[in-house]
Nucleic acid binder design. Structure first.
Lengths: 106, 106
DNA sequence: CACACGAAGTTTGCGTCGCAAACCTGTTTG
DNA sequence: CAAACAGGTTTGCGACGCAAACTTCGTGTG
C-alpha cells in the first residue's frame, strides 16, 4: 500500500516553514547571500541566522563569509545532499496530498 | 510582487506534519473515526488524540464521541473553515514551491 | 465471581524548538 | 568624535510534540 503511514515521514528539520522557504529558494538559485535570503523568505535577521546555522550543522547548506565592499557578506548554497533532501521533501508532500483513502481498505 | 515574503505565511497549526496528514486525509473523506485516522496517518494514539484536541479547539474539526457495538467510537470531520484552511494551506505550499527568484528584482 | 487482557482514548513529563529582542562589530555620515 | 546604520549572532523563554503512563469499559476463561 502507499498510505501516508508508509515512508513519507516528514523531516521536521526541513519542514519548518522558515527552513522550507530557505531551502526552496536555494534550490532555484545556485547561491544566495544573507540579505537576499532575508528578503526572499521574509524572516528576521535573527531567525534567518539561526535557521542557517541549523541547516549548516546538518550539512544541507554551506556558508561562506566574506567581505564585499568592506561589508560582511554571507553566501549560502545547498550541498548535494541538501538538494536531494529538499527535492525529496517536496515529493513526500505531493504524495501526502495525493493520498487516497482506499489504499487503506485491505 | 508575489514573493514568499507576501501572504504565504504558513500556519504552524496546520503545517505540523501530524496535523497536515490528519487534515489532508479528512479533506478527502467526509468523516473518519479515530482508528481509521490512526492507521491513515501512522500517528500513535496519544499524539493523534492531542492533535485532534488542538484542531477541535481551533474549530477546524468537529469531534463526536459515540458507542458502536458497545465500544467507544470517536468520529471526526472537518468544519467549513477547516476545509477552507487546509485548501488554502496547500495553495500556499504550491505558491512557495513555484516561487521564482526574479520576483524580488524590483 | 475474580482476574487478566485488550481496545480506545486521555493525560503527563520533559526535552526541544522557534521567535523576538538584545547584543555585537565594523563603517559611513553629520 | 558621536551617532546612525548595515549585517549578523546570541540569549531567554514560552509553546510544543513526543513517548510513556494511566484510564475506562468490555470480553474471555478458569
Amino acid at each position: 500500500m502507499s498510505a501516508p503511514s508508509d515512508g513519507p515521514i516528514l523531516d521536521r528539520l526541513i519542514h519548518e516553514p522558515g527552513r522550507l522557504a530557505i531551502m526552496t529558494v536555494l534550490s532555484t538559485v545556485e547561491s544566495a547571500d544573507f540579505v537576499f535570503l532575508q528578503r526572499a523568505t521574509g524572516l528576521t535577521k535573527g531567525n534567518l541566522s539561526s535557521h542557517l546555522t541549523k541547516l549548516a550543522e546538518a550539512e544541507l547548506v554551506t556558508i561562506e563569509k566574506r567581505f564585499v565592499h568592506r561589508k560582511p557578506n554571507t553566501n549560502v548554497a545547498l550541498t548535494a545532499t541538501g538538494l536531494q533532501r529538499i527535492t525529496q521533501h517536496w515529493d513526500r508532500l505531493h504524495s501526502l496530498r495525493n493520498f487516497s483513502a482506499q489504499s487503506l481498505s485491505e
